[in-house]
Design a protein around this nucleic acid. Sequence first.
DNA 1: GTCTATAGGCAGATAGAC
DNA 2: GTCTATCTGCCTATAGAC
Lengths: 213, 213
Amino acid sequence: MPKASPSNSKKLRRQEAEALILSAAEKVFAEAGFGGATMQLIADVAGLPKANLHYYFPTKELLYRQVVQNIFEIWLQAADVFDQAEGPEEGIGAYIDAKMEISRRHPNGSKVWASEVMHGAPVIQDYLETTLTDWTNGRITVIERWISEGRMAPIDPRHLLYMLWATTQHYADFGHQIETLNGSAPLSDAQWEAAKNNIKTIILRGIGALPTA
Amino acid sequence: MPKASPSNSKKLRRQEAEALILSAAEKVFAEAGFGGATMQLIADVAGLPKANLHYYFPTKELLYRQVVQNIFEIWLQAADVFDQAEGPEEGIGAYIDAKMEISRRHPNGSKVWASEVMHGAPVIQDYLETTLTDWTNGRITVIERWISEGRMAPIDPRHLLYMLWATTQHYADFGHQIETLNGSAPLSDAQWEAAKNNIKTIILRGIGALPTA
DNA sequence: GTCTATAGGCAGATAGAC
DNA sequence: GTCTATCTGCCTATAGAC
């Protein structure tokens, strides 16, 4: 590989700077909300002058929009495991594992998403109406097939999906409350494992997808 | 009852004005977050001049704190049904009913609470450490008794409580997303009923508190 | 108690040197 | 591309007439 040409090196630096800014922005938006976050604070966290942020992201809103989009991508990827499964025990179990891993690794992203939706999705309403709607309908089809095959009880697929989202994202969005109730300590590896298994056990047994214990 | 004395009439008007402001504030804080909310907008929603808000609530932060406290009270009252029950099917079932009713009737309150916790509970951290911790420990004792009596499976009570909070509050906090996925229409009476029954069925069956269907 | 007008401060965005 | 200095506007809070 030849030495990076000036244009390549520029592009690389641009990507690096953008990633740095996006990471800082995700943290600040999660902790302060869109209205409470300031470009100055994001710049301080990123270790850059404030004007640089405006160079890469013209407005605060565009920066925010990019943060939300990035989260949405990660969010959707967790869905892959759902479809590759033979039945609900494997598919829903793996989906819970994947969503819990995201809650643990990307709690700030989850919080920004939650905040955006709670405020009426002013920035990503189009995503809700297109991509998320399509994704949801696809998963509903899969669940209905499992039900018709007798692999699980006849549960309303839509409310089951809401339950999966709610239980897994709760560990990110309400992480501060959970840590406080844990003696102001982060959950240990074992506690995360227990949380995951607890959700899987109750839901899978609850929908009749586990051999009756 | 004698005609209201000046001091009584003053007090009544104070209460009415405060209630009006608190109601408007809850709505605006829920929709815009603390940082995004403005005293001007709250005043407009309440139909009062902005200066009046500062007369009754000296600072924006004090007004916000009162809103969060009010929600917390409602929240705790739903717990009463938990203790008056004989077993998990009745107790947890009634608790789910009560929490779902709050999600439906006070969605803004739930959102303000969620937002506060997501941002690290800067205003109500003391409540988390005292009242909520005590409440949680009390309910854990009840659940552990039900388990020891063989009325339900040996589930970790703490994670069960998180699941109850997550699933019920999700219908308030993510109400906008749920409505969008419902064709941009609010849930009907029947849909709320279905949601409630779905949660109760899955969780109660999942913890082994239902006669095996 | 109520309201208008305004002070004081801070945040988003940009101009322009380097 | 980077950064300092600054403009502009909005928001909290208050002074002071009524």
